[in-house]
């Protein structure tokens, strides 16, 4: 467009230098086609690990860009409709990019083919390519805090629903009780003993039982809300190091505790109802 205007000026003023500049720009465009193309040729992309994310968060998709030959400047990466991110790769080297993708729904987030484009050096041409990296990120349900109507101790059938099990624990001091063989020496109330009240043991309870059950079936509301609530409690219980069991229709996880257990539970929640109990790795 600009070149056309310049050409018109050159013709109308019969100005050789204006012609020359017009031709120079034209030649530059031709040269730029090659440069732009070269900027994309020989670039290898590889998806790196994707950390799981909660609904509403941003999935960080790691990408590894490797240059096999040339330097690659201002490579724009992104999915259709999203903002492109610029990335530089020096010649024969590797650079890592992290692309953000909003996690909108629970389950596997599969952004589809990645658009890789280059406008470098002059921005008048664009070379692009669609790359299928088979990236997928696991999206956990959004944790929503709320009261659990039931945190049932699984093995204590005599206790009614809704009641809180008081299990021997370490959290709260409840009182003293007579010593029984097997009680920890550490818990003996020596002061009481010295006062001649006999061997008494300080008794502690945990607010909830040592083994809790998060049961999908005992919740009400729509599926997503229930999963969100369960998700919240999985995180909550995990943060205090509690042992718990997650019961989903057709699936029981635990009892267990720890990071791995949490991951398994969250994964199960994320993939609940998707038909894939254990998604692809």
């Amino acid at each position: 467009m600009a070149q056309l205007l310049m050409l018109l000026a050159a013709i109308n003023y019969q100005n050789s230098l204006a012609y020359a500049v017009t031709f120079l720009l034209l030649s530059l465009s031709i040269v730029t086609i090659l440069h732009t193309w070269r900027n994309l040729v020989g670039l290898e992309l590889q998806a790196a690990n994707v950390a799981p994310v909660f609904v509403g968060g941003q999935a960080m998709l790691g990408l590894r860009l490797e240059s096999t030959k040339y330097a690659h400047r201002a490579i724009a990466l992104g999915w259709s409709g999203s903002e492109m991110q610029l990335q530089e790769v020096a010649a024969c080297s590797i650079s890592n990019a992290e692309l953000q993708l909003p996690a909108l729904a629970r389950g596997w987030l599969q952004p589809g083919r990645l658009r890789v484009e280059s406008r470098f050096p002059l921005g008048i041409f664009m070379a692009w390519s669609w790359v299928d990296l088979e990236i997928s990120a696991l999206v956990y349900p959004r944790p929503l805090s709320g009261e659990l109507p039931c945190l049932s101790g699984k093995d204590h059938e005599d206790e009614t629903d809704g009641s809180r099990a008081e299990q021997a624990g370490v959290d709260d001091y409840r009182g003293l009780r007579p010593w029984q063989p097997g009680d920890a020496i550490r818990r003996l109330d020596w002061k009481a003993y010295s006062r001649g009240r006999g061997l008494l043991v300080k008794d502690f309870v945990a607010l909830t039982g040592t083994e809790l059950v998060l049961d999908f079936g005992k919740l009400s509301g729509d599926i997503e809300a229930r999963l969100s609530l369960l998700c919240h409690w999985v995180l909550e219980l995990d943060s205090v190091g509690q042992i718990f069991t997650l019961v989903l229709p057709g699936q029981t996880i635990g009892p267990n505790a720890g990071q791995l257990h949490r991951e398994v539970c969250l994964r199960a929640l994320a993939l609940f109802g998707s038909g894939k109990k254990e998604g692809q790795a």
């Binding site: 590889q46 998806a47 790196a48 690990n49 994707v50 790691g62 790795a281």
Partner: peptide
């Protein structure tokens, strides 16, 4: 080394 860093089957 890079394979272990990029391939999804590796935890790290």
């Amino acid at each position: 080394v890079e394979a272990t860093r990029t391939h999804p089957q590796f935890a790290w």
